[in-house]
Nucleic acid binder design. Structure first.
Lengths: 273, 273
DNA sequence: CTGACCTGTGAAAATCCTGTGAACGCAGGG
DNA sequence: CCCTGCGTTCACAGGATTTTCACAGGTCAG
């Protein structure tokens, strides 16, 4: 039932025989891949928007461990599979604890390598941005159109830039939930937020400005001090009565994701497990 | 501040030697685990709220594949690791494509098995973005919502700050248990408490104030002189029965951390122990 | 009953966090 | 090559939150 979304894989290895065979199969399977013979700067990998990385640490040189560690920390959503020759239990354990997701030993059947890469990539597409069949979402006076990468109020565009739109979409898709900055950054920018980065705040401000401009009298984005932000459209005027009384539906067990009437957010279910 | 959430693992295997060694190490690492010698009904696994499952398909009998497939489909958030004797590439590929996350071959070093289990659990957590799948917790009149970083009483927010919320969450999560200051500080602040630090006391006071304000007539946080604090919702009215009868016994026994799963108010009987 | 310890309080002092305005660097278009 | 739009980084100001203190009131062992 999972139409196995196309996988974007990077391979860092010099074993031409293995790489050739694997490439052939991967391409036949519709994967997009890029092969490199040596360590690739993390930023470059970020830009590639990969699902997975297959790497032989033997070609990483001296600071292979450090490289892997930085990579895993920076791209928590990247599936990392190590595929190398002989290795000790200690090395494998170290790698796995560093953040590597799977460790296979050569020689290995390319089909198995692919299956393992699929396995580590599979995880990621459960809860998050399936991109998927999102129809227009309405929130307050706002209409978010994923197909146009734009939001409107009464037909007027907010003139959001790409990042602004992605941020808004993310927030709106989690309506009512408080999202932490790190989580927001991770999902919108695609990699881990550096300590002290204020980008999220700045974009929130831009969003608020544009929202206020087209839809004055409404509050959309709420700040949760020390935590992050929450999207919840509220017509202004309310003094401070039940500001926080509405969002939480009093339903105890399985929180109803949509207390709001006119909303058909298609957000994936994140109800209690 | 997510160092390493404790892992809840189920093992389905009959290889007593392997299981024994693994159990010992896992317990030493603070994992919670349950061992079974045969297939366990999926519903039961669901109820265990596992992070991961280690299984040898050899003990599953005829419909092993079907069992695994149903399991993976039913619990997409569960990390599944197969650990078995000889296997063909085709079998491994089939398993991995079915939904298994990792496949190791016996004999294997228990440390590596653990590292791989950690790896799949880690990925698991990431996949369900933001984690916090934890449903709201109810205690007394109180409703604690991890997804909002906030607690409510009848829909009204307590306006807890982040620290206050974390403290409350910790206490409520250990309902009935007396927690020492050092332990509380360590877990909420993330590092060791300096000698003479009164922060915990101060935050307990703030919590009590906010709790009293929204839920008067209830006692939630109890002081244990010379020890620490204990969370236990109690409707007022009780005079002074056995309020402080527990101190000597309550600390060490970790016997039944959660006697009541979905209980609301359970006029506790903590002294019995 | 008394002294040594603990815990509850209130408030000041120290920190941390977020909102903002503006400068910078980059890349694409004219 | 210059201009313009966009994303990133800084520094600062105003608040909110945490820590720290000094005291008062309670508790426990002798």
């Amino acid at each position: 039932m999972n139409p196995q979304q196309t996988i974007r894989l990077a391979v860092i290895d010099t074993d031409s025989g293995f790489v050739t065979v694997l490439s052939k199969r991967a391409e036949a399977a519709g994967w997009q891949l890029r092969v490199s013979a040596g360590a690739v700067p993390a930023e470059e990998l970020v830009a590639m928007k990969l699902n997975a990385l297959l790497v032989d640490p033997a070609v990483l040189g001296e600071d292979g461990w450090g490289y892997l560690e930085r990579l895993c920390e920076m791209l928590p959503d990247l599936g990392v599979v190590v595929c190398t020759g002989r290795s000790t239990v200690a090395q494998r354990v170290r790698g796995l604890r560093l953040g590597v997701d799977d460790w296979i030993t050569k020689p290995c059947h390319p089909e198995e390598a692919m299956a393992r890469i699929e396995a580590v990539s599979r995880r990621r597409r459960r809860g998050s941005h399936g991109g998927s069949e999102v129809g227009p979402v309405v929130a307050g006076e706002l209409e978010i159109r994923p197909d146009q990468f734009q939001a409107f109020v009464g037909g007027d565009s907010l003139d959001l830039t790409r990042r602004e739109f992605e941020l808004l979409q993310l927030l709106a898709g989690a309506k009512g939930q408080v999202l932490e900055r790190e989580a927001i950054y991770q999902r919108v920018w695609g990699y881990a937020m550096a300590h002290g980065d204020r980008s999220v705040d700045v974009f929130i401000r831009k969003l608020r400005q544009k929202l206020e401009k087209r839809s004055p009298g409404w509050g959309y984005i709420h700040t949760h001090f020390g935590v992050g932000y929450r999207f919840d459209p509220e017509p202004a005027g309310i003094v401070e009565e039940e500001l926080v009384a509405a969002p939480p539906s009093a339903v105890p067990p399985t929180a109803a994701p949509d207390p709001e009437p006119a909303s058909q957010v298609v957000h994936t279910s994140f109800t209690a497990g």
